[in-house]
Amino acid sequence: MSLYMLRRTGVYLFLSLAAFLSVFPFFWMAVGATNKSTEIITGKMTPGSNLVVNFQTLLSQVDLWRVFGNSFLIAIVSTILTLAVSSLAGYGFEIFRSRVRERIFQLLLLFLSIPFAALMVPLFVMISRAQLTNTFTAVILPTIASIFILFYFRQATKAFPSELRDAARVDGLKEWQIFLFVYMPTMRSTYAAATIIVFMNAWNNYLWPLIVLQTPENKTITLVISALTAAYTPDYGVILLTTVLATLPTLVIFFVLQRQFVQGMLGAVK
């Protein structure tokens, strides 16, 4: 029993240390948002009184509501479309096997490793020929068929019990009905995890939106942060404040979806 206690204490110590390291930069970021740039670079650790000033500076430089609206629009539409298209394909590749599709899938995995910088120029030519530059469509379209999410869903589908599908077939459900009414509810936690990831990727996407979105009124919050960071004399107070603001939505999404995990776990314990 004492060995058990010892091991337990070890686990708690390990987790506490990891938790401290995880959370410290957030603390630093939040404190920084209330300090002046000069105080931040010299490592001031206590909350200051510059929050309002930082806020005013930020508001004088960017149309914050607009920028957030743009980011939300892009991230939400991307997430819905990506989850739909990629989970369909992940399911399709795993459930209905054929030699041709296996080959295609292996090829896709290889494509996943091509650095985006190599594809950016031709992609930009395509988008501009389609008269789509400076539109959100141009940001969203190339990201919908995400090989990575497709791959993720295929891996997750391996755990989808085939008995469920067989039973549904016996009940006379069509394949699309099985996907919609059996697969999707069963794989709730997979969808939840994928939502977090896709939303974050869309929200944080940088290089492609930078090239495609051209006018200030179409900028996303990530582009704003990068512009602030790349400034000649970066104002770290304003940067950290913007970082806090930009992190909040992904944090909320995460907290909301986390319940899905918790429910899944409770269900499994029962």
Partner: peptide, 16 residues
């Protein structure tokens, strides 16, 4: 950003 945008667009031949 000037390097990134200017170069991508000049190479793509897109002036928009």
């Amino acid at each position: 950003e000037i390097n990134q945008k200017l170069q991508t667009q000049l190479l793509a031949g897109v002036s928009d």
